[in-house]
């Protein structure tokens, strides 16, 4: 019996360790793949891109809402030194600005309520002065949702979204 104790304990440690590792890394892996797909579809860093009206043919992430218009901006503090200026232009109807880190956590959401909203995002560990928000991870996604259940409201979003800003400081 004693002879099997070592291998059994080794098996247990390997099982628990692998279990925890897979669960810990899964969200980061899935988020990384989604970001990669967005990059391949032409969503650049530090710029909002309004996604096409959500249909079965245009969906890029799981469980999109066809009633919402999504503007997406990718950020990466490995390729960006200073803060990122984020502005959500005012919209008549539901709108929200939400920030997601590399582990899929929604670390900030700001509701529009018909007004312009502005956020300064800085790198993890950077000095978050003047109300700036420090990102928990170096990479992530910024998403603006606007209620647009029909073509007319989506066309309205198209106009408004031109004034959204996701801009890294230069230098």
């Amino acid at each position: 019996m004693k002879r099997w104790l070592g291998p059994l304990l080794t098996m247990l440690v390997a099982a628990v360790g692998t279990h925890a590792l897979v669960l810990h890394e899964a969200p980061r892996f899935i988020m990384g793949k989604a970001t990669q797909r967005m990059e391949q579809r032409g969503i650049p860093l530090n710029r909002f891109v309004l996604a096409a009206r959500m249909t079965p043919q245009t969906q890029t992430v799981v469980r999109p809402s066809p009633d919402l218009a999504y503007s997406i901006c990718r950020f990466d503090f490995n390729r960006q030194q200073g803060p990122i200026k984020i502005v959500m232009a005012p919209y008549k109807g539901y709108s929200s600005l939400s920030l997601f880190d590399a582990s899929t956590d929604n670390f900030l959401t700001v509701r529009g309520n018909g007004k312009q909203r502005q956020v300064a995002l800085v790198a993890p560990g950077a000095n978050a002065k003047g109300g700036a928000i420090a990102s928990p991870s170096r990479k992530g996604l910024i998403l603006i949702r606007r209620l647009a259940p029909d073509h007319q409201s989506y066309d309205r979003v198209k106009q408004v979204a031109q004034n959204d800003i996701c801009q890294g400081a230069t230098g």
């Binding site: 810990h24 988020m31 469980r63 939400s98």
Partner: peptide
């Protein structure tokens, strides 16, 4: 869902089946 307090199982499920979900206040 969407919060850093979610347990690892919820986080994994949401990442696969509801990526970019908002936290409950929204």
């Amino acid at each position: 869902i969407g919060s850093s307090s979610a347990n690892p199982y919820v986080r994994a499920r949401v990442a696969r089946s509801g990526l970019l979900a908002l936290s409950r206040s929204e």
